[in-house]
Amino acid sequence: MFRGGVTGFRPKSIVSSTVSDSHTWNLIFMQLLLEEMGHEVVNIGACVPEELLADACLEHRPDLVVVSSVNGHGFNDALGLIRHLRAVPGLERIPLVVGGKLGVDGVRDVGFTRRLLNEGFDAVFAEHELGGFREFVSARGLRAVS
């Protein structure tokens, strides 16, 4: 997947909420952040059913899918989401990360995080881990090169 060094490469990413989450300021923020890292971003918006996200992935073939949720159902919704997406032919290996305020208790649920990783997420970020997210994007070679 190493893409660095190829001039003119412009990564494409999808920013999406989960099925039950209607918050959008987080999505707008993640879109701007990725655009500033040189990405072309498709922002799917709020309350995204799993099928809709799968269709969008098949249509846009993104280099990265960023799921953002803050309503407290994130862990639970992301579990359903990753099981659905990983079972769709063509999406078995598409890079997928999730982050935000994922539970209702304000703490990282270690068990849930492990389950999400086991089910196929490439990374799970807590709300303050934007630095880690940037490093992840760079390490995957998903920064635009001009």
């Binding site: 039950s20 209607s22 407290g72 159902h73 639970n76 539970g103």
Partner: peptide
């Protein structure tokens, strides 16, 4: 009310109650 009820997914709300998943 919680987000599953808000979005009309009462089945997901029922499952969450049964599985002990905390609702918002």
């Amino acid at each position: 009310l919680d987000s599953y009820t808000r979005t009309g997914d009462h089945e997901a709300a029922r499952r969450a109650l049964a599985d002990g998943v905390k609702l918002n």
